[in-house]
Write a protein that binds this DNA or RNA. Structure first.
Lengths: 301, 301
DNA sequence: ATTACTTACGTATGACGTAACGATT
DNA sequence: AATCGTTACGTCATACGTAAGTAAT
């Protein structure tokens, strides 16, 4: 098999057109280099040089081979340099799971930051609900998850990424918006509402239940949905009010107004970043370090 | 330095995920292959595999390296295959000199034929007058010349490629075109004419001198030019008549008519293909063989 | 016990360097 | 004589295969 030493020898001689100088450049003596070239020519079955009184000249075959030879050496160098970057987390592929709602808030910033800081790390983004992300983390389908708490399970670690207030979603024309008095939890009592499903959207379901319990109110749940944007559609359709994370602002949903509610500040919606701890993954670990905020992000705007 | 055996070993193990089977594939025993991988890892300073009870699995670095590793092996194979094609004349670069006039006739056909028959031979075309081509052949600037005879000089060989009639070039409105009688050499006696320079366009100069001497006529040379298209411009400008090779037809020069002359048939203009014989150049030699016509070409149309 | 990778060790192939050689100006 | 490339040859390193070792089911 062709060896890179042979190829490097060939390139040196082709550039110097002088075995002696080429050998010096390679820190060796002439004879072995001379033999190396001969062996290379024998292996290829092709004469690469014409031997003249005044050194060597490349044959047509030699000229053709020179380009490929240089390419081989560069590729070998580059490949070595590249692979050495992997354990530093500077190179690799990281699959990231995210929930639909995080896409409105954190995902854009994260991708921007990651690609700026680690231009040679490829991000593969896959939308999935929080429960599916936990499974995907375990079986290795994703390396990193952006999901709603709680994150439980052996070998999983997570950090809080985003903390955002919940807002009331009302039809834009609703009188509560104009009569001046600020909305409170008490205003939700017996009000027709769009609620989140206990299964499929456990996180928001439990969060809202806790909030209403604390406010001692009992809304009139008319529909149960799993997605924030579905809830907003139903509000626009007049089914009732809803409560959504402030990230929903970025959806710019016409016909629905999002307004703060006194008493809901104690129940912020949270997003966590989660990953497996059982074995290191350089690129993922570098991303985790780079993306962990010193304190949870507040929604922008 | 990285060796291709190491790389091939790595690829085999990465594909089998089993040193034993990989070794079998490479017709060797496990231990040396195992050591090869270890050495590769030591050289790269990076772990490529995780050793488990159930064989090996690729690390992130291993996955990243696998692509480059395959590329290296392919490049080595391809480079070897390519270089072996050179001595068969199937691969290489051939510089071809040509005179402006051959571009109108033969050059197009030649390029078409050459690229069809030898798709991997690169043609470099350079326009130069015949005398310059002879020099360029000698110093290796061009490998092949398409030029006017005579081709002299040691180490040069040539074959006749094109033989084309000379035509009279007259202003399109000239009465000689309509009065019915065919043009003869005698009609040129004392006629104002555009002539070729004895230096710079020796070939046409001498050819025409010989023709007029044979016809015992003495035209009135008003201007001396080197290029066929310059001659045609001057004809159109009314300076006088000219004599041009029939290839000039392809210039479609408005305002100038090209018509045969009885007596000029004995003085065809010729184009030869010339090359050095002192040492073989596979791609050029293959072209010479492919392009040498069984008999000189007549101009098309 | 079986499976699979690694370490140990003796052998042989191969590559280096020194020295001698050959060819050309 | 001087310059370059090649051949000859002795030495050392590298890499192989066999065999033993280690770790995990």
């Amino acid at each position: 098999m062709l060896s890179l030493e042979q190829v490097a020898g060939f390139v040196a001689v082709a550039e110097e057109l002088h075995v002696g100088r080429a050998a010096e450049r390679l820190s060796m003596t002439q004879p072995p280099l001379s033999r190396r070239i001969q062996m290379l020519e024998r292996e290829l079955g092709v004469l690469l040089f014409e031997r003249t009184r005044r050194g060597m000249t490349l044959t047509a075959a030699g000229r053709a081979f020179l380009m490929d030879a240089r390419r081989m050496l560069h590729l070998a160098d580059d490949a070595a340099a590249r692979v050495r970057r992997v354990p530093r987390g500077e190179l690799g592929t990281v699959s990231v799971g995210f929930t639909a709602a995080t896409a409105y808030t954190y995902l854009g910033q994260m991708v921007e930051l990651a690609t700026r800081q680690f231009p040679d790390v490829d991000l593969v983004l896959r939308e999935m609900v929080s429960a599916t992300q936990i499974e995907a983390l375990h079986d290795g389908t994703i390396d990193l998850g952006l999901l709603r708490p709680p994150v439980r399970g052996t070998d999983l670690r997570s950090v809080l990424i985003v903390r955002e207030p919940l807002l009331a979603a009302l039809p834009a024309a609703h009188p509560a918006l104009t009569d001046g008095h600020a909305l409170t939890l008490a205003d939700f009592d017996a009000v027709p509402m769009v609620m989140y499903q206990p299964t499929g959207s456990t996180y928001f379901h439990d969060l809202l239940r806790a909030a209403f319990a604390a406010g001692l109110v009992q809304p009139d749940f008319r529909q149960f949905v799993t997605q924030v944007h579905t809830a907003l559609s139903l509000v626009r359709a007049g089914v009732g009010w809803a409560v959504v994370p402030s990230a929903a602002r970025l959806l710019s949903f016409d016909g629905v107004s999002l307004i703060p509610v006194r008493g809901l500040e104690a129940f912020p919606a949270e997003v966590e970043m989660a990953w497996r701890t059982d074995r290191p993954q350089p690129a993922r670990d570098a991303l985790v370090t780079a993306l962990t905020p010193s304190s949870p992000l507040r929604p922008q705007r």
